[in-house]
């Protein structure tokens, strides 16, 4: 199915496929910040986010010629960012002989001394609560709660039905609330 795109976006995609660097810069200017926060919510540290984001950008530039236009350009980029972040987390956890959840708990344990985290006590507790969720629920909760991504867009990014996403988000909200009340 061909996603509906504006003429402007179609033109940008055409220029990107031709290898235009100025078109790529336009793309970065438009989306880098949203991609950054999407990755940051998953990998937590700024330095790791920077590494993953740079890889994501390079991957986007190199694989744009394979973009079929079945989805919106930004959901396609989000999908790359999501997969890269998951791969990064799995790799880091494996390197340290930890599960992904244990690895995330380790990172969250260091947040208080992170210069790029200025959250208060409740925000720190929120991060700890999110880390207790299964990986997919974490993504759904963060995309909805922090980034306010629509269920339709999320459905394209995570290839999950909107019904399933709504249900997962609702379960995640209840679990996070329960954690915040009891810890």
């Amino acid at each position: 199915m061909q996603a509906i795109k504006t003429t402007q976006e179609q033109d940008l995609i055409r220029r990107l496929k031709e290898g235009s660097q100025s078109a790529f810069k336009e793309l970065l200017d438009a989306h880098q910040e949203r991609l950054y926060w999407h990755i940051r919510n998953m990998v937590k540290s700024h330095d790791d986010t920077d590494d993953v984001l740079q890889n994501v950008c390079i991957k986007i530039f190199r694989s744009i010629k394979n973009f079929k236009g079945d989805s919106q350009l930004y959901t396609w980029m989000y999908r790359i960012a999501t997969n890269e972040s998951i791969t990064f987390l799995n790799k880091q956890a494996k390197l340290r002989n930890r599960t992904v959840q244990e690895y995330q708990e380790d990172i969250i344990g260091k947040l208080e001394s992170d210069v790029y985290f200025d959250g208060d006590e409740i925000q720190l507790k929120l991060q700890k609560a999110i880390a207790t969720l299964p990986p997919k629920q974490q993504q759904i909760f963060q995309m909805k709660y922090f980034q306010d991504i629509t269920y339709d867009a999320m459905s394209e990014i995570l290839t999950t039905s909107t019904g399933g996403l709504k249900s997962s988000y609702h379960i995640a909200v209840k679990k996070v609330t329960e954690y915040l009340k009891t810890h």
């Binding site: 926060w37 919510n41 790029y116 609330t177």
Partner: peptide, 12 residues
């Protein structure tokens, strides 16, 4: 619990 406009606490 979090406030209506809750943020993640991360900065860049």
């Amino acid at each position: 619990l979090l406030g209506a406009d809750a943020k993640s606490g991360f900065t860049s």
